[in-house]
């Protein structure tokens, strides 16, 4: 058995070496914008994940909120308080803590909806491309119909259906899941189309035929052989879609159909701030806005770099 273990160790080492010698690693360290974006994205993601630990207040804990402190400007301004670095919102919540928790929700919605639409889209794309014929026609026409609506409209539609179907209090409770599903359903088409065309190119290759000659059933050929070979573009779409999903969530929340003000995401915060913008309390919407831009931009830059790095024509 020791020989088998040895080869496992060797293969692990080889894998690490492969990554280090790989083109992706190389191109990453030669792209300043990718490094910059990665740093920003990591900082945002880590501070969002550890928000309960690093944020000075818990904005969801009503006991810590004092309405007397409502609408305080940032600490460096004349009326600002030392206690609240970026000021407070209309309910007296510390804005910095609220942004960290809001970014946490935004990222959660983003990642969850990307994963759901990725699984849905890649699955349908694999079936559509491999089976072909009528199945393909039906799936792709549904995709075409959906593509003719803006993503935000689809998300509104899905959200609307849940609002009608669920009682009000239940809906508030499930708002997070409803919005994840709504964004996920609006985004699967990109994955399905890309995967379908890659599958059609892959399935005529001889390694797929070799699998057929061995006698492997279709689902094994699809999952074990074709899927790993079509995942490159999917990763790129996934990254760019992550930024888009965060923005759609913010838009929905801004429109008031997203997350409720009790558990505010970045979009909800911007909406709350928007109501006070003309009474001079600009900081309530500006700082969450900046956080949103930085988060979306860094993820987008990463996606752009990944797209170029994986494109053999641009190497």
């Amino acid at each position: 058995m020791s020989s088998v273990k040895l080869t496992r160790m060797q293969s692990l080492k080889r894998n690490l070496a492969n990554i280090k010698n790989g083109d992706l690693w190389y191109s990453f360290w030669r792209s300043p914008s990718a490094i910059f974006a990665m740093v920003i994205a990591l900082v945002s993601i880590l501070s969002a994940v550890f928000a309960p630990i690093i944020s000075p207040y818990n904005p969801f804990d009503l006991a810590q909120v004092d309405l007397m402190d409502a609408s305080l400007p940032p600490s460096w301004m004349a009326e600002g308080s030392e206690n609240y670095f970026l000021g407070t919102d209309d309910q007296g919540r510390d804005l910095f803590s609220t942004i960290l928790h809001g970014a946490r929700l935004s990222l959660l919605v983003g990642f969850a909806s990307v994963i759901i639409s990725l699984v849905l889209g890649v699955g349908l794309g694999l079936i559509s491309g491999y089976v072909g014929g009528r199945t393909d026609v039906i799936i792709m026409r549904i995709a075409d119909v959906q593509l003719s609506f803006p993503a935000i409209l689809i998300a509104l539609l899905v959200d609307g259906i849940f609002r009608v179907a669920l009682p009000k209090d239940l809906h508030d409770l499930l708002a997070l899941y409803v919005i994840i599903v709504a964004i996920a359903i609006s985004g699967w088409v990109q994955y399905a189309r890309t995967v379908r065309s890659s599958v059609m190119a892959e399935k005529v290759k001889e390694y797929v035929q070799a699998g057929q000659v061995i006698g492997l059933p279709s689902f094994i050929i699809i999952l074990r052989h074709i899927l790993p070979n079509v995942m490159g573009p999917v990763l790129v779409i996934g990254t760019i879609h992550l930024a888009l999903a965060i923005i759609i969530e913010a838009t929905l929340s801004f429109l008031g159909v997203g997350l409720p003000p009790t558990t505010p995401s970045l979009g909800t915060l911007i909406r709350i701030g928007n109501e006070y913008l003309f009474s001079g309390e600009w900081w309530i919407s500006l700082f969450p806005g900046i956080a949103l831009v930085v988060l979306a931009l860094s993820v987008n830059l990463l996606g752009d770099w990944l797209r170029d790095a994986l494109n053999p024509k641009l190497r």
Binding site: S11, K205, E206, Y207, A210, V213, P228
Partner: peptide
């Protein structure tokens, strides 16, 4: 099926590049 196997023309596409 087990008793008949095939050797393909193109050595670059007949092996799945993602597998050892």
């Amino acid at each position: 099926r087990r008793q008949m196997q095939m050797v393909f023309q193109d050595p670059f596409s007949s092996l799945n590049g993602r597998m050892r």
